[in-house]
Amino acid sequence: MKTFKIFFLATSLLFIYCKGQLPNDQNENKTSTLGAIVSKMDEKIWKVYQDKNDNYWFGSNGNGVYYFNGKQLRNYTTKDGLIDNAIRGFQEDTLGNIFIETHSGISKFNGSKFITLIPEISEENKWKLTATDLWFHTNKTEIDVYRYDGESLIGLQLPRKDLDKAFETKVVGLGFKDMSTSPYSIFGIDKDKDGNMWFGTIVAGAFRYDGTSFLWFLEKELSTLTDGRVPGVRSIIQDKNGHFWLSNFISKYKVSEDGSSYEKFEGISKSITFFDNRIPYFNAGLVDNFGNLWMTTYTGGVWKYDGKTLSNYPVFHEDEDVLLISIYSDNDNMLWLGTDNAGVFKFNGETFDRFEPINN
């Protein structure tokens, strides 16, 4: 099953849109004319992505994008046309354009330059879903998500629900830095193997959109917890049996064949004992080509679940616990980690090793 890519945190200011595109064989040459050649990457690399031509894009939290083609490492920043240097995700369209999500908006790289997309709000909130859509976060209160159809970046709003009644408590948004104060502010955006879109919110649960209707997951564990902590639905992954894991080890869900309802099952049995005083939630996850679940917690390393056993892979650098932000599977099914304090890590089959690109 194709790995879910995990995307979150973007804002929108003034945007400029253009439809320019170069063939992929020209993109490599044009890319090399931008940015500065550097010898190493920032320590805060939140996102990892490999494009169709096997080039790597590393997104930092403040120093722009690092592009590695196997020979040279280049750094692209706002000086080169990026809308912001705090990177939150990468996507690629069918033409080979790279879309870079930041907390100040979305930059499109067309092979020769970075272009900032102009968002527009769908006044009638008309949702639509096609196979080639790209979806992005926004920090605006009146809209929850952007859908990019290849021409327009359209702002949409999730269905409003009676949250107080559903969760039996007063539900309010938190307004974390670079996020809106709306309870529907989106943490996680994922696509399942059937092409349905999943949206995980900060305190309003999760929503599944099949192109026609929404299915709302309103479980209390997906909102503000009884002790006041707010994990949020940051990552949504589908296991080999078709169950969905919504950012926690506690439960998994099965959607009915017609998509109108869901059933809840126990997740990893007694999983809370693995975490001592930490809540059993993960901030990023994926399923590998063998059907194993891989999940990261900010501290405590990487967790692998094969359907029976939960295993832990500690990740350290210079005797310090590495703070994990994301996990990614590349074109060769190699696992990568984005971190908040130690750069990038790559799995060698047994442990995660720090990755150091070398300029040739």
Rank of each mutant, 00 (worst) to 15 (best):
N63L: 10
I202T: 12
G349R: 09
T33G: 00
G200D: 04
I143K: 12
S235D: 12
F176M: 05
T3F: 12
S311R: 11
F99V: 08
K2H: 12
K346Y: 10
D332C: 03
L215N: 05
T130W: 04
H317N: 09
E263G: 04
K308W: 07
L117N: 02
T297E: 09
A131C: 02
Q21N: 14
L323D: 08
K346S: 03
Y313K: 07
F58H: 03
D93L: 03
T141Q: 14
D321T: 06
S261G: 09
D276R: 12
D319L: 11
E219C: 02
V302P: 07
W336N: 06
K47F: 00
G195S: 07
Y262E: 09
K19G: 00
I358Q: 11
T226M: 06
L82N: 06
P23M: 01
K308Q: 14
Y328A: 01
G64H: 05
K44R: 13
V255P: 06
K264S: 12
R229K: 15
E124Y: 08
Y313V: 10
S260E: 15
S329C: 05
I325T: 06
V315Q: 03
T130P: 10
E257H: 11
F275I: 13
F316I: 10
D190H: 13
K5F: 14
G211H: 02
G20F: 04
L335D: 01
D42Y: 00
K79N: 08
D330W: 06
I237R: 06
K270S: 11
F345T: 02
D25C: 02
D80E: 14
S107F: 05
E356N: 06
A206H: 02
N292M: 03
H317C: 01
D162G: 07
F275D: 09
K52E: 02
G70E: 04
V203C: 00
I37G: 00
V65I: 14
Y146R: 06
D210E: 01
A166Q: 08
R88W: 05
I115V: 15
A342W: 09
G35W: 04
V287K: 12
I250K: 15
S182M: 05
I154C: 08
C18Q: 11
V322F: 03
N61D: 03
S260Y: 04
Q91P: 00
I100L: 04
G175E: 08
N75P: 07
Y305V: 05
T296P: 11
D84I: 11
A204M: 05
L14W: 08
V230A: 09
N360V: 11
T339A: 00
G105Q: 14
F90N: 11
L335K: 12
S60Y: 03
N27H: 09
P159V: 09
I186A: 10
F249Y: 15
I37M: 07
T33L: 12
K220G: 04
N359K: 01
L158F: 09
S260V: 10
